[in-house]
Amino acid sequence: MATGGSLEEIAEEDALRVHWYSLLGKLLGAPPDQATLDQLRRLSGDQSEIGEAIAALAAAAAKSDPKGLDREYFDLFIGVGHGELVPYGSYYLTGFLHEKPLANLRQDMRRHGIARADDVSEPEDHIASVCEMMAGLISGAFGAPSDLAAQREFFDRHVGCWAPRFFEDLEAARSAAFYMPVGTIGRLFMAIELQGFEMAA
C-alpha cells in the first residue's frame, strides 16, 4: 500500500484522507480477505449519510465471505471479456482503454515519482491505483508530500473527472452486494474531497 510516508508529519485532516483513499484502494484492488472483513464489520458510523454508508459496509462485511466476494469481484470488475463495470479512467473518459487519459496519467506519475508495481499488468488508470496514488501524494509515500494545489491538480486530471461516475455505477451495479456500500462511500468521499479542495482555493 502506498502509505509509506510518515503520517505523523501531515495534518490530521490529511491523514484522514490518506486512510480513506487507502481503504478504497484496498477494497477495489482485490476482493477482501477474512481478516479485512473482520475489521470492516467492526466499523460504525453516525447518523449522517456517510455514517449510514459506513454502517452499511460493516453490515455487508458481516454477511460476506471471501469466496463469495471473489465471485462478486470477478463479476463486477473482470468478467468474461469484461465485467459489469470497466474500472479504468480511460474507459470512462473516452469509451476505450489505453487512450490519451492513460498516457497523461503515466506522464504525471513519472513527474510525481510514482511507478506501477512490478507484478501488476493492468493499466495504471484502474480505480484502485489512482486511489493509492492520491493516498501516496498526500502522505508523501513517493517523496515529499504534495501540497494541496498539486493534489488538486492530480485529482482533477485523473480522479475527479471520472471516479464519481464510477462510484455511482458501482452503487447501482446489479452484481454489487458487498460493493454497493463501497460505491456509496466512494461517491460521498469524492464529494467531500471536492468540497475540501474548494475551501482551500
Partner: peptide, 27 residues
C-alpha cells in the same frame, strides 16, 4: 475551516479511528 469540515464529516467522526487502525496494520 477545511480541517474542521473534513474532520467533522462522517469520514472523520466515529469510523476514522477504526479505518486508521486498519490502514496502519496494513502499512
Amino acid at each position: 475551516d477545511r480541517r474542521a469540515f473534513l474532520c467533522k464529516s462522517g469520514f472523520g467522526l466515529g469510523a476514522a479511528g477504526a479505518v486508521a487502525a486498519m490502514v496502519a496494520r496494513e502499512a
